[in-house]
Design a binder for these strands. Structure first.
Length: 874
RNA sequence: GGGCGCGUAGCUCAGGGGUAGAGCGUCGCCCUUACAAGGCGAAUGUCGGCGGUUCGAAACCGUCCGCGCCCACCA
């Protein structure tokens, strides 16, 4: 099909099929682009670089509409930059997604009734690699289908050799700078994934629980504490009260009997306790609560762990072996039996942390982990935005960014997983700890073992903007393409990914931020604004829509909804609408080709052109400027909307219709219009190409005979404007619209020819008589013409002979309505103009506008009254 | 608890001190030789409520109601 169109270009009347069939065109076009190397970025190029990295999709799956959305934006940005002459790199790749991928493969194993422990670490990791090999191809296939102009030769994976070197290098550097350390702290533990996770990997949600108040101690020395996690009381090592709380002053330092155990625990005074809250007494479990851990540290309390990694009670006694929830009710029951439950609140809604990967309730747990000391890194990451080196779009998101980087706790980076970058630290037989850099020998010999943990997956993706370019090697690509130009990603990973890239980029690249601009887009939602999810059943596979309506349609719909930073709803109807638009472009170009539109030769001089041609060229250049400005501001919805309306309303409806008369009349004017129409389509297709690459490529190569739109020059505003022509055509449009309305109200069928006398002499409409007659199906007046309806519009007169068939009632109704509107207008305008305060304070242009409205309304009234008088009696 | 944002046509959303906009949907006429995936015409809104600022408020300010999101060591 594509081959066909190429050949047909030389034919005198190229014939494109009547309907655009995207599915036949898109695949071959994409492969041709790749084969020709359009998307390959050359580090040796003289051109200025423009770099964007893909937010690496997880290998765990396939692309969803969110990816399609993100890729549309990135592809549009990079396609335009490529056309503008930049050496453009869109860096592709995927993320190993440690915990997510390990979970997927573990689930697969579970189907075979195996666990990863049955395989052992090495075999398991091998199995994940195998799985990655099978799954990764799916994603690149989808990206090709979408039309992503990525440099496939540079595709990277966060676990490949080079990126592993980068990870080791950065780890070592941070370690040597004492920005990475190992410490025992309370961490967020997922008892299902069996690993620590970082603070942001915990999702809080309100869960129903039970708040019980427990009486500790005996006799006079009792306190009441409240808890939602009664099972942790087995690990209590103190009671805390506010040091100034007079109620409990006497107890500070005393020992209180801990129920269900044979232990007694001290009462300590700590300012963390809010005396206003509850009883003002807090049970302290340093091994299972972050606050309690802090209190424990301050008072030198012991930490007693009472649960294992599966959240099963390990403390000796009747509760040993119970799961935390079983233990909770068992312990409450036991305490109740002892009469120690003094109050219960059930349900008690409180915020509970869940593992963002598997939704299991997090168990805070004391554990030895590796940490990044984020203080200095986060400070730099914040400053780079504060001092304007890096801009965030939309700007409202900056506040969120600052809130986070300015209040960041140290980052727990070790994971008790097998899939990921192994922590490059070795422990010797005599307690030696050695961090092994990328060029160092790994320690060998008796008793040396490597740390068994792997790094948080975001550690390696934090290096993505430079690790993909070969860092730590000082490659040509790194020199050419770092820093990246723009980062386009969802606001949902601002902290996970963007902030981490900022920290690592600034740190590793000597203060050069990884990108200058951060563009945050929203999330794709369904047509009712609901979040898309598999469980809710409203998730859509973008491939289905692409097969049905074409990638262009999906892309255009997404771009059109892309208002900065806000979520974008999408429904199948809208994709259909975009498909219709693509088809409209197709047919308009088909019309142009059939009528000899050309891009050959210079544009005719403006003096020679008709007002119609000058009008559309004026509008065209204005739209070029408008679209460019929107692109610079990442306003995808606006630019798509502007192009949609310009193309459809102005070019395809008005201009194309107006050219028909010109083409019929022939002569120099027709020749000129062929060139102008060619120009308008040439530029319009170029402007549309970044968003709808396929249909525009097919049409443009046919129209121009050139190789490809992908490497064509991006249009620039020639500066040509002709306001007089714009006003003139607006008037023509008004006349035609007005008479059409009349025709419609009169029940005249669109095709019905009506004899008419046009009195246009001395008005700017005179040159457009033929076009007006054609568009309105107005015949020459001929013999025995009798005007039965006269429409004075814009200083001219259109008199129609309806041969006595005029629907007087309908026309009277229409005119009466118009009259009422005009009278209302006059009242409103007079009210304004009679208001002295308004005249004194309103700016001139507003007053002029109102005066203009008044004048027009007065003229309208005269006209309408005349028309009403002229109507035959009903 | 703190922060951010949003409530505009049936639906999804733009707009933003000077007579209310788009897409989809609805109604009517039409297969007018680029396109019925189309053309032409039409209808539809006290711009969440109440106050205030202003000559003028849907827009700015305050407040209330409703919704969403982010952050937080709410025992």
């Amino acid at each position: 099909m594509t081959e066909n169109t190429q050949q047909q270009h030389s034919a005198p009347e190229p014939e494109l099929p009547k309907t655009y069939a995207p599915a036949e065109v898109e695949g071959p076009l994409y492969e041709r682009w790749v084969d020709r190397g359009y998307f390959a970025a050359d580090a040796k190029s003289e051109k200025s670089p423009f770099t964007v990295v893909i937010p690496p999709p997880n290998v765990t799956g396939s692309l969803h509409l969110g990816h399609a959305f993100e890729h549309t934006l990135i592809d549009a940005i990079t396609r335009r930059k490529r056309m503008q002459g930049f050496e453009t790199l869109w860096q592709p790749g995927m993320d190993h997604a440690g915990i997510a991928t390990q979970n997927v493969v573990e689930r697969e194993l579970a189907k075979e009734a195996k666990s990863r422990h049955d395989l052992g670490r090495e075999a398991f990791v091998e199995r994940v690699w195998k799985w990655k090999g099978e799954s990764g191809g799916q994603i690149s296939g989808q990206m090709r289908r979408l039309g992503d102009g990525v440099d496939w030769d540079r595709e990277r994976f966060t676990m490949d050799e080079g990126l592993s070197q980068a990870v080791k290098t950065l780890f070592k550097k941070l370690y040597d700078d004492e920005l990475i350390y190992r410490a025992e702290r309370i961490i967020n533990w997922c008892p299902r994934c069996l690993t620590a996770i970082s603070d942001i990997e915990v999702e809080y949600q309100d869960d129903d629980g039970e708040l019980v108040s427990l009486k500790y101690g005996d006799g006079d020395e009792t306190v009441v504490v409240a808890t939602t996690r009664a099972e942790t009381m087995l690990g209590d090592t103190a009671i805390a009260v506010h040091p100034d709380d007079e109620r409990y002053q006497h107890l500070i330092g005393k020992l209180i009997k801990l129920p269900l155990t044979d232990r007694s625990i001290p009462v300590v005074g700590d300012t963390h306790v809010d005396p206003e809250f509850g009883t003002g007494c807090v049970k302290v479990t340093p091994a299972h609560d972050p606050n309690d851990f802090e209190i424990g540290q301050r008072h030198g309390l012991p930490s007693i762990a009472v649960m294992d990694e599966h959240a099963v009670i390990t403390a000796h006694g009747p509760f040993q072996g119970l799961d935390r929830l079983e233990a909770r009710s068992a312990i409450v029951a036991a305490l109740r039996a002892e009469g120690r439950i003094v109050a219960e609140k059930r349900p008690y809604t409180h915020s509970v942390g869940h593992c963002s990967r598997c939704k299991t309730t997090i168990e805070p747990r004391l554990s030895m982990q590796w940490w990044v000391k984020v203080g200095p890194l986060a400070k730099a990451a914040g400053d780079a935005v504060r001092d304007g080196q890096v801009k965030i779009h939309p700007q409202e998101m900056e506040k969120r960014y600052f809130d986070w980087v300015d209040n960041l706790h140290d980052w727990c980076i070790s994971r008790q997983l097998w899939w990921g970058h192994r922590i490059p630290v070795w422990y010797g037989p005599d307690g030696e700890v050695v961090c092994v850099g990328p060029d160092d020998e790994e320690p060998t010999g008796e008793g040396w073992t490597q740390d068994s943990d792997v790094l948080d997956t975001w550690f390696s993706s934090g290096l993505w903007p430079f690790s993909t370019l070969g860092w730590p090697e000082q490659t040509e690509s790194l020199a050419k393409f770092y820093p990246n130009s723009v980062l386009v990603t969802g606001y949902d990973i601002l902290f996970f990914w963007v902030a981490r890239m900022m920290m690592f980029g600034l740190y590793a690249m000597d203060g050069t931020p990884p990108f200058h601009t951060i563009v945050l887009h929203g999330m794709v939602r369904d047509q009712f604004g609901k979040k898309m999810s598999k469980s809710f059943g409203n998730a859509v596979n973008p491939l289905d829509w692409m097969d049905k309506y074409g990638s262009d349609a999906v892309r255009f719909t997404l771009a059109r909804g892309a208002n900065p930073g806000v979520d974008v709803p999408i429904g199948e109807d809208w994709v259909q609408g975009s498909r219709n638009f693509a088809n409209k472009i197709w047919n308009a170009t088909r019309f142009a080709l059939m009528n000899g539109a050309t891009v050959e030769g210079e544009l005719p001089p403006a003096e020679r052109l008709s007002a119609t041609d000058r009008w559309i060229l004026s509008r065209l250049n204005a739209v070029v400027a408008e679209v460019d400005a929107y692109y610079e501001d990442y306003q995808f919805a606006k630019l798509s909307e502007a192009l949609f309306h310009f193309a459809w309303d102005e070019v395809f409806d008005w201009y194309v219709e107006l050219t028909k008369t010109t083409f019929q009349e022939g002569g120099q004017a027709a020749e000129d219009t062929k060139r102008v129409l060619g120009e308008v389509l040439d530029v319009t297709l170029k402007l549309l190409h970044p968003v709808v690459p396929f249909v525009t490529e097919t049409l443009w190569t046919t129209l121009t005979g050139n190789e490809s739109l992908v490497v064509a020059d991006w249009p620039t505003d020639s500066g040509f404007r002709d306001e007089a022509a714009e006003r003139e055509i607006e008037t023509v449009q008004q006349v035609i619209t007005e008479v059409r309305r009349f025709r419609s109200d009169q029940g005249l069928q669109p095709a019905q020819k009506v004899p008419a006398r046009l009195t246009l002499d001395g008005t700017q409409l005179a040159p457009h008589e033929a076009a007006i007659r054609q568009l309105l199906r107005l015949q020459p007046e001929g013999e025995g013409f009798a005007a039965t309806a006269t429409l004075p519009v814009s200083g001219a007169t259109v008199a129609l002979d309806l041969s006595g068939t005029i629907d007087v009632a309908a026309e009277r109704k229409r005119l009466t309505k118009d009259l009422a509107a005009a009278e209302k207008e006059i009242t409103a305008a007079n009210a304004k103009l009679g208001n002295e305060a308004f005249l004194a304070k309103a700016p001139d242009h507003v007053v002029d506008k109102i005066r203009g409205r008044l004048t027009k309304a007065e003229a309208d009234i005269e006209r309408i009254k005349g028309q009403l008088d002229a109507l035959p009696a009903a």
